[in-house]
Amino acid sequence: MPAANIEVSETPLVLYALRRADDALILGHRLSEWCGHAPMMEEDMALSNIALDLIGQARELYTYAAKAEGKDNDEDKLAYLRDVRQYRNLLLVEQPNGDFAQTLVRQFFYSAFADLYWRAMMTSRDATLAAIAAKSEKESAYHLRHASEWIIRLGDGTDESHRRAQAAVDHLWAFTGEMFAVDDGERALIHAGIAIDPGTLRGRWLTTLSDVVGEATLTLPQNDWMQQGGRAGRHSEHLGHLLSELQSMQRTFPGQTW
């Protein structure tokens, strides 16, 4: 029965696409959990739009990963038939929504990176990745704008919103280091001009963060100890629950078309 996990031949390129696809899907999924429950209807609309952008990015990246792998996997098999240890997303994106502040700080940290990342990736020698980057860059730029405006309002709003926003910043900070890490396989892709070195983005990322966080009257933590492991399939406990929900239909009714 094909409800068992699929096997993926993780060549550096396949793994590279898969990691970004998993980031987009898991974060999109998290945001979609808000639909119908946001603090105001205008935000139901906004968060759903961002979720749809991310799910769209995930689909393109999965399709590309499947093509690069050249077996009979496809976007749905990659999304629905890998378990926690096979998922390659950042720990940051799988963190639960928490309150609105936590969701928006998570989005802000990620989008501030994604905006720079996709813009840089537009020059990738890999035509598909460059095309995905061109589309994703515009989307991420808006996600960053939206999140920044909220960080400023929550930070510089009421005492309660300030406290919640600062708590979210403090809590999620340790998950940001992973965005800039590179392993050997990725290093080879960077040399080949297919990938970019995310380490080179960290300075500008920090500038964006400092600007917005400063305007929001919040502070960034001093602690540099960063959690790692998502890229290698060592996740937090949260991802398993997310996947059991995300994958429930495909796991319960193996091999069917929906």
């Binding site: 959990e33 119908g36 759903s48 979720a51 799910i55 689909r59 749905d76 629905y80």
Partner: peptide, 17 residues
Amino acid sequence: TRAPSLRRKAALLAKVQ
């Protein structure tokens, strides 16, 4: 959160939105 394919997930989210 349980839509059985990514295509269905996107369509349903857009619909509920």
